[in-house]
Design a protein around this nucleic acid. Structure first.
Lengths: 117, 117
DNA sequence: ACGGAAGTTCAATATTATTGAACTATTGAA
DNA sequence: TTCAATAGTTCAATAATATTGAACTTCCGT
């Protein structure tokens, strides 16, 4: 037994730091995840939100960074984990920041986003 | 002789990437540098723009990151290097991003910004 | 010329990211 | 009620980055 499944930790809005938000969004994969979460405006599970060519352990790591930065809410739903943006809380603390970033962000070039014929 | 002094490289506007901008601003020291560059709206030398408690090699590294991200312009002026924000170019490529971030950014807590009595 | 000031470069160390492999937890079917 | 599949986590090993002391360069004033 290598490890038990710990519950997700979400920082309260008060402790969310701008630097952590920027750091989380500075990674192309995480930016793409957030893009997908905002486009489809319903919660997405991890494999749907993340670029599918990445190893699961890498995906999991990126979700952890997003969660600990305060950008996303994750909830276990049976065997999957559904993720949603904490967009209202963040926009209240840092008005316009995430909106401007997502507006400027181009889709990540990866197998998922290449033309599906 | 350990190394010659290379000229500064500034990426052309076309190749500036959003991720690099965010990455550069995700560091508290670099965010503070950019804050100072925009407040005083004239170019500042490195030691003035950077928190003074940091080693010079660390300061130099942070300016390099900001430069290579395309956030700042650096120019040698005699013995010093003066730095200015490439704010117009960046705002044209990524409208509102840097403005929103700087608006949300609090001054870094460091000896420089603590109350000068 | 020399000393100081401002910053760079290098190299060593420390921190952080990536990912394969083993694992947990839940579900649906036999 | 076991069983296999699905979805994701955790750990550990390795790779990539950041931090910074020390030596160096360049320019300026005297």
């Amino acid at each position: 037994m290598v490890g038990v499944q710990r519950p997700f930790l979400h920082p309260p809005a008060e402790t969310i730091r701008l630097e952590s938000i920027l750091y989380a969004l500075a990674d192309p994969v995480r930016l793409e995840i957030v893009r997908r979460l905002i486009s489809g405006d319903c919660p997405l599970n991890c494999s749907t939100a993340a670029p599918s060519h990445l190893p699961k352990s890498t995906q999991s790591h990126h979700f952890q960074v997003l969660r600990e930065a305060g950008l996303i809410q994750s909830e276990r739903r049976g065997t999957e984990v559904v993720n949603s943006l904490r967009i209202h809380e963040i926009d209240e603390k840092f008005p316009g920041v995430v909106a401007a970033i997502l507006k400027a962000a181009k889709p990540l070039k990866c197998p998922d986003t290449e033309r599906a014929n």
